[in-house]
Nucleic acid binder design. Structure first.
Length: 268
DNA sequence: AAGGAATGCAACCGCAGCGGA
DNA sequence: TTCCGCTGCGGTTGCATTCCT
């Protein structure tokens, strides 16, 4: 059973879009809205496949696109998001208003890779280039502060709930050198999104006034004053008796109840 | 000025995931 | 539960432009 072609290739144009095609597509979408890409070309009188129309609209014709060079702030944000999300360009694009995944992907490959390499940073691992690669990618991310990492690893080799925060390198070392590591050479630890757990926060702030608001995760990433910043509007922890709230962490605008699968991140 | 190399970016391709039948 | 169509995503390609010799 073969895949049916997305369009009848014999009767479709390929390559660069003409001004007239652009105008037809814009006019059609203005009237009928986005969606139904498969039937759109015929309805709009375009000799293009639906995928091509969608791509042209999303990457080039959409009115809310921000054209022009990337700013230094955008550069740094892309780097930070890439270090967290990997090549999830659509998710990264969702955090950069007016930018498309394709644009960011191209920009990454042409500019940022080089920029990181010139800083001596491996653009894939976000580590110094001379540091040996010991781990691979992970796709399951946990915000849970529970002490169940080893248990989970033993119980379910497919789902690694990584205990969060700054002790990660230690944890990684533990896992890397553990018998489990030998059993599961494909264990992937590279991509992790982990705000600090309450315990570690408490530990690292033992001598500080806990009545002060902690920095939210967005701020810890350097995305201060963004819409993801929880410092001022939603203090996660109000007092020592409110530990339960840590289980519901609003990361990048996403409420998490402990385990975050990156695929659930909603593009805005 | 010419032409080859490098770069940038728009567009294509194939696959995965989702949802409806 | 399975099948199938549609949409969206990420990797890759190819062309136009710029740079260098």
């Amino acid at each position: 059973m073969g895949r049916s072609p997305c369009c009848e290739k014999a009767h479709t144009n390929k390559g660069a879009w003409t001004k007239e095609e652009d105008e037809r597509l814009i006019a059609y979408i203005r009237t009928h809205g986005e969606g139904c890409w498969r039937s759109l070309p015929k309805a709009a009188g375009l000799l293009r496949c639906g995928k091509s129309c969608r791509l042209r609209w999303i990457n080039y014709l959409r009115p809310d696109l921000k054209r022009g060079n990337f700013t230094e702030e955008e550069d740094e944000l892309i780097i930070k998001l890439h270090s967290l999300l990997g090549n999830k360009w659509s998710l990264i694009a969702g955090r950069l208003p007016g930018r498309t995944d394709n644009e960011i992907k191209n920009y990454w490959n042409t500019h940022i890779r080089r920029k990181l390499l010139s800083r001596g940073i491996d653009p894939t691992t976000h580590r110094p280039v001379n540091e040996p690669r010991t781990t691979q990618k992970v796709t399951t991310i946990s915000f849970a502060a529970g002490d169940h990492k080893t248990k989970d690893i033993e119980e379910d080799h497919k789902m690694i709930n990584v205990k969060a925060e700054s002790g990660l390198s230690q944890l990684e070392d533990e896992i890397s050198s553990s018998p489990f590591r030998e059993q599961c050479p494909d264990l992937n630890l590279e991509l992790r999104i982990s705000p600090p757990s309450w315990q570690n926060y408490q530990q690292s702030h033992r001598d500080q006034d806990l009545r002060q608001s902690p920095r939210c995760f967005a701020c810890s990433l350097g995305i201060e004053n963004s819409k993801d910043c929880n410092c001022s509007k939603n203090n996660i922890i109000n007092n020592n008796n409110n530990l339960g709230n840590i289980a519901s962490y609003n990361f990048l605008g996403l409420k998490s109840n402990g385990v975050l699968d990156y695929r659930t991140l909603e593009t805005k």
